[in-house]
Design a protein around this nucleic acid. Structure first.
Length: 574
RNA sequence: CGGGGCGUAGCGCAGCCCGGUAGCGCGCCUGCUUUGGGAGCAGGAUGUCGGAGGUUCAAAUCCUCUCGCCCCGACCA
C-alpha cells in the first residue's frame, strides 16, 4: 500500500526534545523510528524500507563476493564464550540471562564463537575451504552510553560475515575480497566514505580496516594523507618518531615556583612558553602495586591503546589522585619524572627530540625547567604512545596529515587463528596434517549506515535520500482537491507503478503546504506536484529534492521521465 | 561509572522560586467554509504532573528515596 492516507507514517511537525543530531531528529520526525527504551527502537514502515534497501545491497555484494548467507541464533550458551575467554572479557556489554534451568546464555553481540563452533563440527577438510558465511541479524550490546538514535543502539541490525581459509595467502585474498565488496556496498548506497587502518579492539586479531562515512557528527577521528592513500583511525595511526636531537650544551636544572599551574595551559600562560616545551607525566595503575609513568609532550594527547599494547595489558587506568599524591607528594598537575622512585618511566618518541624541557617538580606549586632525559632521570622504555594529530608527517609520504570526523559503518578484521585455535576449529590438509583455520570477520552496521546517509544528506527541511536507499523513489503530491487532480494523480500513480517505480501517492485530505513539508521531510528524491494549475496548462512540476531543480512536463510524459531519471541515478551509484 | 540537565495531554513547552480548582501552542475528534508552501470559524476530548514515601488543613510546587530519559567523557557496527 503506497497511498499516504493509508500508510503508517506518523510525521511530526516539531523537533522531538530528545534528539540532537540530524539523523536521529529526522528519523523520528519523518516517522521512520520510535524509541522503546534507551538505545532500543522500533522500525516503522518507512524506516524499514530504508533498512531493507541497504540489506539488499549488502546481500547482493556479499553474494557476489562468494559469501553464503545463513542465520545464527540470537541466544547463545555461555560455554562457547567461556572457551574463548570472552564470557569474562566482554564485560558488562554482554547481555546475560538464564533459562528456566539456570543455564547461562547471552544475547549475541557478535558471532565468532557460534560460527566457529559450527565450523569445527561440520568442516574437516581443506577441500571445503575457503568458506565465507554471513548473516544479517539483530545484535545486542549493552552499551555504556547509547546515543543518537540508530547511530549507537543497544539493539541494532548488523551484517556479520566470517571467513575460513587454509593458509595466509588465501586468507589475505578473502580479506581483500571483503574489503572490495565493502567499497562497492558503500559506493552503491551513495555515501562518501573512506576506508582507514584501524585498531582491532575487543574482537582481536591481526589487521583491520574501518569504513568511515565522513560526517562532522562522527564520533571517530581519522587522519589521512592527501598525497598517498594512507588513512587511519587516530587510535591506530602510527606516529613517525622525530629525529633525535643531539644537542651539545644542556642548561642547568632550574626550580620555578608555579602556584596554581595545574594544567599545561596554565603553566604555559604563567611561564610564557610553548606547550611543546612542556612534558606531561601521566601515571597509570599497571598492577596492584605497580605504577607506570608515561611522558607525553605538552601539546600531544596520550593514546592509551598504544600504551596498553606496549605493556601487554587489556585495560589501563590512570592512577587515582590519592595514589598520585602518595607517590609524588604533590597534587595532580605537579607530577614529574625527576626523583620519582619505584616507578617505571616510559617516554613517547617525541621526548627524544626535546632538551631543556619543563616538567612537574613533585611538590605543590613547583615545576622544573631545563630538564633533560638521562641526565636528570632514567627512561625505561621508548615508544609511540601518543595520538596522531593534524600536521604530523604521514608514515607513507611524509607530507602533513589532515584530520576528519567519521562514522564507523563497517569494519573488516583479519583474525588469524585466534578463535580457531581456542575452539579447535581445524581442518586436515592434503598430507593429513591438522591446522587451525585462518579466520576473518567483517561487520556492517545496517541502521548506522541509514543514519549516516542522513547525516550526509539533509538540509533544514529534512532528508535528501540518495536514490539507492530512498524509502520511495518518487512521491505524488496532490495539492488541490478537485476531481480532476484526483483522477490525474491516480492515473499517474498507476502509470508509475506499471513502470516499477516505487511511488508514494500523497492522497491525504490535507492542504498543499502540509504535503510539501512532509515530502521534504521524508526526503523522497522526486516530488511530482499535481494541482489544478498544472493540469490546466498540462504542465506538471517535478522537483528534485536534493537540488531543488524543477522540470515542467505534460502529464503523459512524467512517468517516462521519472523512470529514466531513477534508472540513471541508480546507475551512477552502481 | 563520573560530571551536567530533564521528566506536566500524542508532540513542544509554561506553571514550581513564593503550596490553594492543571494551563498554552501544535496535533486529535465533530460541523461548516477552505485547498499550489504547515487554513479559518464554532464546538469537543485528552493528564494517576515519572513512581513511592514524608511535611501540611491543602503538594505539580517543599523534603527524602527511587525509576526513566537526554547531553559531555572511557567502548564499538
Amino acid at each position: 500500500m503506497m497511498r499516504f492516507s493509508q500508510c503508517f507514517i506518523p510525521t511530526m511537525r516539531q523537533d522531538p526534545g530528545e534528539a540532537e543530531v540530524a539523523s536521529h531528529r529526522l528519523m523520528l520526525r519523518a516517522g521512520m523510528i520510535r524509541k522503546v527504551a534507551a538505545g532500543i527502537y522500533s522500525y516503522l514502515p518507512l524506516g524499514l524500507r530504508v533498512i531493507r534497501k541497504i540489506e539488499t545491497i549488502v546481500r547482493e555484494e556479499m553474494n557476489r563476493a562468494g559469501a553464503q548467507e545463513l542465520l545464527l541464533p540470537i541466544l547463545s550458551p555461555a560455554e562457547l564464550w567461556e572457551e574463548t575467554g570472552r564470557w569474562e572479557f566482554y564485560g558488562k556489554e554482554l547481555v546475560r540471562l538464564h533459562d528456566r534451568h539456570e543455564r547461562a546464555f547471552c544475547l549475541g553481540p557478535t558471532h565468532e564463537e557460534v560460527v566457529t563452533d559450527l565450523f569445527r563440527r561440520e568442516v574437516s577438510s581443506y577441500r571445503q575451504l575457503p568458506l565465507t558465511l554471513y548473516q544479517i541479524q539483530t545484535k545486542f550490546r549493552d552499551e555504556i552510553r547509547p546515543r543518537f538514535g540508530l547511530m549507537r543502539g543497544r539493539e541494532f541490525i548488523m551484517k556479520d560475515a566470517y571467513s575460513f581459509d587454509q593458509d595466509e595467502a588465501s586468507a589475505q585474498n578473502n580479506y581483500q575480497r571483503m574489503y572490495d565488496a565493502y567499497c562497492r556496498i558503500f559506493s552503491r548506497t551513495g555515501l562518501k566514505f573512506r576506508p582507514v587502518e584501524a585498531d582491532t579492539g575487543l574482537i582481536g586479531g591481526i589487521s583491520s580496516h574501518e569504513f568511515m562515512v565522513l560526517a562532522n557528527t562522527g564520533e571517530e577521528l581519522i587522519v589521512f594523507d592527501p598525497e598517498s592513500q594512507y588513512a587511519a583511525n587516530v587510535e591506530r595511526a602510527e606516529v613517525v618518531p622525530p629525529p633525535t636531537k643531539t644537542s651539545g650544551e644542556l642548561k642547568p636544572l632550574e626550580r620555578v615556583s608555579t602556584p596554581n599551574a595545574k594544567s599545561v595551559e596554565d603553566l604555559c600562560a604563567l611561564l610564557k612558553v610553548e606547550a611543546q616545551r612542556v612534558v606531561k607525566t601521566l601515571l597509570y595503575q599497571t598492577g596492584d602495586n605497580e605504577i607506570t609513568a608515561v611522558l607525553i609532550r605538552g601539546d600531544h594527547q596520550a593514546n592509551e591503546i598504544k600504551i596498553q599494547r606496549f605493556l601487554g595489558l587489556h585495560d589501563l587506568n590512570l592512577a587515582t589522585p590519592e595514589i598520585v599524591e602518595k607517590i609524588t607528594t604533590a597534587p595532580l598537575g605537579f607530577v614529574g619524572p625527576v626523583g620519582l622512585s619505584n616507578v617505571r618511566i616510559l617516554a613517547d618518541n617525541a621526548i627524544g627530540a626535546l632538551s631543556d624541557f619543563i616538567v612537574g617538580g613533585n611538590e605543590p606549586g613547583l615545576h622544573l625547567m631545563n630538564v633533560n632525559a638521562t641526565r636528570d632521570f632514567t627512561i625505561a622504555g621508548w615508544g609511540d604512545f601518543r595520538q596522531a594529530q593534524a600536521g604530523d608527517p604521514s608514515p607513507k609520504s611524509g607530507s602533513p596529515l589532515q584530520t576528519a570526523r567519521g562514522i564507523e559503518v563497517g569494519h573488516v578484521f583479519m583474525l588469524g587463528t585466534k578463535y580457531s585455535e581456542k575452539m579447535g576449529a581445524t581442518y586436515l590438509d592434503a598430507d593429513g596434517q591438522s591446522h587451525p583455520a585462518i579466520m576473518g570477520c567483517y561487520g556492517i552496521g545496517i541502521g548506522r549506515t541509514a543514519a549516516s546517509a542522513i547525516e550526509q544528506n539533509h538540509d533544514e527541511k529534512g532528508i535528501c535520500w540518495p536514490m539507492p536507499i530512498a524509502p520511495f523513489q518518487a512521491q505524488i503530491l496532490t495539492v488541490t482537491s478537485s476531481e480532476a487532480t484526483r483522477v490525474g494523480s491516480e492515473q499517474l500513480y498507476n502509470e508509475l507503478l506499471q513502470h516499477q517505480i516505487e511511488v508514494l501517492l500523497d492522497d491525504r485530505n490535507e492542504r498543499g503546504g502540509v504535503k510539501f513539508n512532509d515530502a521534504d521531510l521524508i526526503g523522497t528524491p522526486y516530488h511530482i506536484i499535481i494541482g489544478d494549475k498544472g493540469l490546466a496548462n498540462n504542465s506538471i512540476e517535478i522537483k528534485d529534492r536534493k537540488t531543488g531543480e524543477k522540470v515542467l512536463l505534460p502529464l503523459n510524459q512524467v512517468a517516462d521521465w521519472i523512470k529514466k531519471a531513477v534508472a540513471q541515478q541508480l546507475q551512477t551509484q552502481n
